[in-house]
Amino acid sequence: MPDNRISLGQGILKGLALTIKHFISRPIITVQYPEERLVTSRRIRGCDLVWDSERCTACCTCAKSCPQGNIHIETKVRPDNTREAVVFEIDHGRSMFCGLCVESCPFDAIHMGRSYERATYNRDSLVIPKEKLVAQGDRQPSGYFRPQFEETLPPQSLLIYGGKSSEVKTPENPPPQSPATAAPVSEKKEPAEREKVGVK
């Protein structure tokens, strides 16, 4: 195949120039994880479930919808004929975080969390009782199936949308305010939201 173009080695030189340019002037794009971390997706199904004791009516729909039976609830009837969850435990060690409990809750009382660090030294500590299930510290509800929270959360920082420096959330920054308490849900909105996903 006769190819009469004269090559001066431009290809290799161009490549070498590009790599040295990267070496000298491009900023590092990797995230130095424990020190810096990116803001997760607003709809993240993180490694925990956040329970809202105020809204929960102890109807046990979440426990029934759990494919693995991880949610353990014991209830008692209050004098005013409402129910109260005496025991509300979720075994996070067995959870596959499918989110079915969150989707099935008729009163928006259980949410997926935003945290993704749940390493522990033993399995027992993954069974979380109801005192620790509520939103506190880094257990904050995510916008998964909860559009009312999603609006309040900071947008996700993605490396592909440019530099990380401005968008990186450092541990010094205050955690996002707890939407569970900040944004009460209007009762009218709920049935419509549930219908959107559909029972089919």
Binding site: F23, P27, I28, I29
Partner: peptide, 13 residues
């Protein structure tokens, strides 16, 4: 470290 820098990483640090 140097190859990491070339690939916009930090390398072992």
């Amino acid at each position: 470290r140097v190859v990491g820098r070339f690939q916009l990483r930090l390398g072992p640090n």
